[in-house]
Amino acid sequence: MLRLENAIIRNGPFNVTANLAIESGHRIAVIGPSGAGKSTLIEGIAGFLPVTQGRILWRDQDMTTAAPGKRPVAMLFQDGNLFPHLTIAENVGLGLRPDLRLNGEQKARVSDALARVDLEGKEARKPAELSGGQQSRAALARVLVQARPLLLLDEPFAALGPALKHAMLDLVTELSAETGATVLMVSHDPADARRITDQIILVDEGVALAPQETGPLLDNPPAALRAYLGGTG
């Protein structure tokens, strides 16, 4: 379980306040208007932004001040999820050892992960030689070998076309179901939220609310969410 206890995450002059708990194994969409603080919340959990008050706990262990790489978190960003000068195998291998001194067993795990995302044989390619969808799958392969219990997605598939994006989201669902990882994803699209998540964290004006069931919330949105979604008014 991930708990944010009266946590205030600072992003320059802007703060996001969160007092909530997330049960393990859920897939959760983080939804809210632009500038409401969705990315700030995610980056605070990942450790890229400082928590000025309160605590963040993972399985009752305080990780408020832990370095990003020491948290139980794997994260995919909007862009720059692969190092352009390294091969695909090296990019995935970084998830096992940042110094890339992999033993035979670890190399096999890299190959298995690439096969799992349908990229077998692409080990020696550079990211620029792959299509956008293949690049996303390579990044997911790294998430797979990282095997962290918490996966944070800050709209990594936003640049893909609708069909590819759906395929990627489905792949995320499959992989997280296999590993039991908890998924938190920033989303602008209620359809995406319905497609793969079972809960929603609503972020509005710098406050993150506790998770609510996706279906009922979207079927009967409160005023703030309704204004954001547009729709029936």
């Binding site: 890229f48 370095a67 790489g69 978190v73 994260m75 960003f77 190092f83 000068h85 110094d99």
Partner: peptide, 23 residues
Amino acid sequence: NGRLALSLDMSSTLFLLRILLPR
């Protein structure tokens, strides 16, 4: 690449030698 390197627990030396200088 900074945040990705951090999330992969890459040390300062590794980031310098493997990412920053090659690029």
